[in-house]
Design a protein around this nucleic acid. Sequence first.
DNA 1: GAATATTTTTAGTCTTGCCTAATTTTGTGG
DNA 2: CCACAAAATTAGGCAAGACTAAAAATATTC
Lengths: 231, 231
Amino acid sequence: MFPYIYIMSTGSHIHTLSEENYLKVIYHLGKDAKVKISPTAIAEALNNNPASVVDMLKKLVDKKLILYEKTKGVKLTDKGKKSALLIIRKHRLWEVFLLEKLEYSWDEVHEIAEQLEHIHNPQLADRLDKFLGFPQYDPHGDPIPSASGEMADIYKTILSEVTEGRTCQVVGVKDTSSSFLQYLKKLDIGIGTKITLIEKIPFDNSVIVSVKNGPNTTVSKLFADSLLVHE
Amino acid sequence: MFPYIYIMSTGSHIHTLSEENYLKVIYHLGKDAKVKISPTAIAEALNNNPASVVDMLKKLVDKKLILYEKTKGVKLTDKGKKSALLIIRKHRLWEVFLLEKLEYSWDEVHEIAEQLEHIHNPQLADRLDKFLGFPQYDPHGDPIPSASGEMADIYKTILSEVTEGRTCQVVGVKDTSSSFLQYLKKLDIGIGTKITLIEKIPFDNSVIVSVKNGPNTTVSKLFADSLLVHE
DNA sequence: GAATATTTTTAGTCTTGCCTAATTTTGTGG
DNA sequence: CCACAAAATTAGGCAAGACTAAAAATATTC
Ligand SMILES: [Mn+2]
Ligand SMILES: [Mn+2]
Ligand SMILES: [Mn+2]
Ligand SMILES: [Mn+2]
């Protein structure tokens, strides 16, 4: 009556919730730098035990999702990387959904997306993507991988670093306090909003901007330091 | 880094995925009739084994979600019923979302909602409800429980049973074939669409209707038998 | 290069949720 | 009430995914 039936589309395999979380963590650790991805590092990220990690690494090797050579550390196979990117894609798309459609705030969306990223359906990510208007960045300014698994580099900086005269696009926030978020709402600034940096005032480092090509507004240095943008 | 942290709101407890599926099945079995809800019946609904069911029933009794007296069968406590209704509420709201916003068809939504119903967040159901415009019925014509756990009775009938001159509202479909669904789309009929039954033609039982108070259209008996409505 | 510190791996358990097989309880027809 | 069938329960196990403690392998340091 209520069995879970998954129809596998070509090449797409279903992994357990736990496996998916490992793949995602391994992907993120690999992005950071060329640091060796060790059981200890993974355990730290997953908030569990190195011994548990070793157990799971064996399973992931068997399933050809990772390569693991002792002393060389862990590396995702193409298959593993593809799976990881789909999970990240779903995570970030759901975050946009929660923020834009369900009016959650920037700091609430992550925890719920942590659950939603594990919903399986062949068309789900693409339909959600379309419904949201193909957003490029999630509410924290991180790029959303494309359907084919490509992910834009992160060029985000803070508003105060933008060159005078240039227009940038809001990709996220550094501060998630409700006072900041409310101020953003008041200024009609959200993800994707275009802001032109008119002038920087040397006296107190405040910044004159134009939101959506509207009238000039002055914002504080604190404000300009808290807004993540993409030139 | 990626732990699941749930903030429990007053009185709301988090159950495991398995527990939730048991609660939902027990609720549905209890609705049907005053048949005794036995381990065997539950096992059949969950497509598992009576011995497994007995194990779980003990846990549910411990957690005060059900009452279980041998020979009398299983009954949800108020706490258990409340949890079951929230799961059903989420299930049906997500089905509406998938149909209306992500353009899934009537027969695809159930399987995905089976997963989505288990996403936990104190405000999620209510925000989704608001976003969807407080729908009263899911795509299969079943009523959506309110935030407080009340659920309308099902008064749905087929369009062909509606009295001449009366207006009804579409609550679901009996046929989920794509040919039927495409025809519905062509006629601009969806969930909640108001249809007035103008006249029944005795010759071939076809029916003249007005969709959204628009011009009269004639539909076949087969069509009128396949559309679930609520007078 | 030996001694020590750190990391990784193994070994042995635990819990959850399921299973099969065996046993007990309950229900029914005569 | 007795015999038999059906349903419920118990007993014993298994796989996944976690844990602790101990052993083995690597890295560091003097
Ligand atoms: Mn996130
Ligand atoms: Mn996750
Ligand atoms: Mn359903
Ligand atoms: Mn379910």
